[in-house]
């Protein structure tokens, strides 16, 4: 047989006779979910969830400091307590001193008046 004697119709028929693989096996191969594709989104979801949690934690931390704008983040609770007790001590000492001065003044005035009176 001489293939060079192909007519246009014969060439078309020959081309149409060549069929692509449409078996069930190939269909399954093409339409099955690839294993990597199942794992990869889970990884991305994990990363996205971690980032979201970090963002939320950071925003909560920042907002907790913004409630007390005068407090510097370096001050610790212990330092604050220490300063407070120091201030209370100083205040009590000042009050005691003022009381002593008042008593002393009263004594001097009384003594002076007793001297003045006949």
């Amino acid at each position: 047989m001489k293939q060079t004697s192909f007519t246009e119709d014969q060439l078309t028929d020959a081309l149409r006779a060549l069929k692509a693989d449409t078996s069930d096996e190939r269909f399954r191969l093409l339409t099955s979910e690839p294993p990597k594709a199942r794992i990869r989104p889970l990884l991305w979801y994990g990363v996205a969830a971690s980032v979201a949690m970090l963002i939320v934690a950071a925003s909560i931390w920042q907002s907790s400091w913004s409630i007390h704008p005068d407090t510097t983040p370096t001050a610790t609770t212990a330092t604050v307590d220490e300063n407070l007790s120091q201030l209370v001590g100083q205040s009590i000492a000042a009050q005691t001193q003022a009381q002593q001065q008042r008593t002393l003044t009263n004594d001097i005035v009384s003594e002076h008046l007793s001297l003045v009176e006949p």
Partner: peptide
């Protein structure tokens, strides 16, 4: 027809 198809497949 089968022979022609085979020739076409090889040329393709």
């Amino acid at each position: 027809a089968r022979e022609r198809a085979e020739a076409v497949r090889q040329a393709l």
